[in-house]
């Protein structure tokens, strides 16, 4: 593994830990898109079905996969749990979470039918998850562009998520040049799309929150 890949994985892991820490320590969940977090849980469950075959790439790979499934599922459970403990915040969160995710699910399913490595259940599920991950941030982006309520989404979470996507690009360039010109085209193009969406996410965050903050301060 090259340094970009390791740092990319670690920043992804960090972003999830930051989000969990935020949800647990602050009462503000309004800025979080429940739909985006649910889509991420679906992404990891459908991508890592290969865990069940026990043809594991490495211990590192298997442990990271288990971490991503468990931690994203935990985020969904935490958000869902706030329905009882913090009803007002929960309703606020859902009220602004109005992006239609059916389109993302259908689009990703179609992309996986057109672009896959093999026409098998595991490979179709893998491709579906890669395409879904590339667009799963859209409900969050949409929510942010409409309301700009981002108290619990800290700069650190977005920075870590953006860093993870950005680092995967030099990782692919590194791998392409060192590993016999091999490149996973599906992961590469879906990854590029995702990185573009993240740069938009950061731009909106910057204009709405960082610059907007100056106006709101008493």
């Amino acid at each position: 593994m090259n340094p970009f890949r390791i740092l990319g994985d670690l920043s992804h892991l960090t972003s999830i830990l930051i989000l969990i820490h935020n949800i647990k320590t602050t009462r503000y969940i309004e800025g979080i898109s429940f739909k985006t977090q649910t889509l991420y849980a679906l992404v990891f469950i459908t991508r890592y079905l290969d865990l069940l075959t026990f043809h594991w790439v490495s211990l590192y790979n298997a442990l990271m996969k288990i971490f991503f499934i468990v931690s994203t599922a935990y985020i969904v459970v935490l958000l869902q749990g706030s329905k009882r403990t913090n009803t007002i915040a929960y309703n606020e969160m859902l009220m602004h979470d109005t992006f239609k995710i059916q389109h993302l699910l259908i689009g990703s399913a179609l992309m996986s039918v057109f672009f896959h490595h093999k026409f098998t259940f595991l490979e179709l599920a893998w491709s579906f998850s890669v395409w879904l991950e590339s667009v799963a941030i859209l409900p969050q982006l949409y929510m942010l562009s409409k309301g700009g309520k981002t108290r619990s989404l800290t700069v650190h979470y977005i920075f870590a998520m953006g860093l993870y996507r950005a680092l995967y690009i030099p990782n692919w360039i590194w791998r392409y040049s060192t590993e016999d010109k091999k490149l996973d085209k599906i992961a590469f193009f879906a990854g590029l799309l995702q990185t573009l969406l993240y740069s938009d996410f950061f731009y909106i965050y910057y204009t709405k929150v960082i610059r907007g903050k100056g106006f709101k301060l008493p």
Binding site: R5, D9, H12, R47, D50, H55, V57, S58, N61, M64, K65, F68, H117, K118, E123, W126, Y168, D184, A187
Partner: peptide, 10 residues
């Protein structure tokens, strides 16, 4: 038989 595809990235 074809080899299984190894998705080594996360």
């Amino acid at each position: 038989s074809e080899e299984d595809i190894l998705h080594d990235e996360l």
